[in-house]
Nucleic acid binder design. Structure first.
Length: 428
RNA sequence: GGAGGGAUGGCUGAGCGGUUGAAAGCACCGGUCUUGAAAACCGGCGAGGGUUAAUAGCCCUUCCAGGGUUCGAAUCCCUGUCCCUCCGCCA
């Protein structure tokens, strides 16, 4: 959420910046609501003050045995007026809050202008796409021989699921283990096992709700369908649980930066992506990801963004997978991000780079939603900055390994760094 | 699932329906003392919001959450959530 004070004091400037993200802020409506809010809040608080002092007086008079009937009459009047004002104020504040919850984060000055992924800007690339002297196969054809089974998964739970068996299951596990080991031992992240089911409050905190509910899976038990409290959402990313670790906290400055990583399953409904990436592992309802989250001092978040991008890159480099780093343009950026780098890995069968990691600085946007703060140098609570990034999406990395390490007869060489995890299997 | 007990400031922990945003202790910050530190003593110390040029004043809100009673609720009533103890069940 944006700082209400900022939005209030400079609505035009904020609206201008939001245009970069292709969001149109309804300034007229905002200003009108804000004007009403101000007068309503002031009078409500005045009435509250009157009620408080009146009640004190009431007690005093009564203890001296005086007559309170005149005062009671006045208080009844104040209370009636107060009740109406309070209700109107709550409604108005709800309206303003709802409006603000819908507004995306402001993009950083360095974010390029643009409409969609075609306008993203190449920052750097690493590695040379391998040239093949045979016709490359894609991961679906390659994986079949080693236990990648879409047909069985579809029979059980429909489209966008996969079963991995035998060697390919092991390779998938090796990748996740490897990523986790690198992030914990080389980059200083603390490993966390998190819940996969969360309440809506957590999702409001990181910004998936209220706007993007249709992308999420929600549980519903027949027995308690009536009780909203018992509804759970399946996490679309461990960003949700890791970042919410600091919700409602006031951290000591020494606790920063916090670096957290988790290997979890992620669940996405992929509503609105019908027909896209229907083949293979690229876009699934359930996939695994090693997520990185950093909770940092506000002065350090831009530095941390660069560093964290490097943490994701390290995995690709160690695996020897060619990739490029893209700075997302305003139109392609996510809701909560102030700036995002995507890592795109080379997929020979598609003959193109595909997203495999996304690293974002959310600045104080999420922190404000979940009241995640630290005690600053002058002893005052101040919002932290939050960052998140994939390090990496395991399924997509598996795709990249299969396709980049294939040979002419359909075997896959296991990358060196994974061999310690493969129990002696050097080639699939 | 059954029976009880509880939820108060960073922590521990008091709190008759009115002067309690809340005792006390610890922690923390400042000062005196000290070569320095500790101890001792003195002082300060929750958070959110409004108004405002203001990080100055003033005001409002806040004692798990949501309702209710009352002129007035941390204190009374209802509902929910979470935690603890005991019994049962169970990976």
């Amino acid at each position: 959420m944006l700082d209400p004070k900022l939005v209030r004091s400079a609505p035009e400037a904020v609206a201008q910046q939001l245009l970069k993200k292709h969001y149109k802020l309804d300034v007229a409506r905002l200003v009108a609501l804000e004007e009403k809010r101000k007068s309503l809040q002031v009078t409500t608080e005045q009435l509250q003050s009157e009620r408080n002092s009146g009640s004190k007086e009431f007690g005093k008079i009564k203890s001296q045995g005086g007559d309170v009937s005149a005062l009671k009459e006045r208080m009844d009047q104040v209370n009636a007026e107060l009740k109406a004002n309070e209700q109107a104020l709550v409604e108005l504040q709800d309206e303003l809050h709802t409006m603000l919850l819908d507004v995306p984060n402001l993009p950083h000055d360095s974010v390029p202008e643009g409409q969609d992924e075609n306008d993203n800007v190449l920052v750097r690339s690493w590695g040379e796409p391998r040239t093949f002297d045979f016709d490359v196969k894609d991961h679906v054809d390659l994986g079949e021989a080693f236990g990648l089974d879409f047909e069985a998964a579809t029979r059980i739970c429909g489209a966008r699921f996969a079963m991995l068996r035998g060697k390919i299951a092991r390779l998938h596990r090796a990748l996740a283990q490897f990523m986790l080991d690198v992030q914990t031992t080389e980059h200083g992240y603390e490993e966390v096992i998190t819940p996969l089911l969360v309440h809506d409050t957590a999702l409001y905190g990181t910004g998936q709700l209220p706007k993007f509910g249709e992308d999420l899976f929600k549980t519903s038990c027949d027995s308690d369908a009536e009780q909203e409290q018992k509804q759970f959402y399946l996490i679309p990313t461990a960003e949700v649980t890791l970042t919410n670790l600091v919700r409602d906290q006031i951290l000591a400055v020494e606790q920063l930066p916090m670096r957290l990583t988790a290997h979890t399953a992620c669940f996405r409904s992929e509503a609105g992506s019908y027909g896209r990436d229907t083949r293979g592992l690229i876009r699934q309802h359930q996939f695994e990801k090693v997520e990185m989250v950093q909770i940092v001092h506000p002065d350090k978040s831009w530095e941390a963004l660069e560093e964290m991008t490097g943490h994701a890159e390290a995995i690709l480099q160690k695996l020897g997978l060619p990739y490029r780093v893209m700075a997302l343009c305003g139109g392609d950026m996510g809701f909560g991000a102030a700036k995002t780098y995507d890592l795109e890995v080379w997929l020979p069968a598609q003959n193109q780079y595909r997203e495999i990691s996304s690293v974002s600085n959310c600045a104080d946007f999420q922190a404000r939603r979940m009241m995640a703060r630290f005690r600053n140098e002058s002893g005052k609570p101040e919002l932290v900055h939050t960052l998140n990034g994939s390090g990496l999406a395991v399924g997509r990395t598996l795709v990249a390994v299969l396709e980049n390490y294939q040979d002419a007869d359909g075997h896959i060489r296991v990358p060196d760094v994974l061999q310690p995890y493969m129990g002696g299997i050097r080639v699939l």
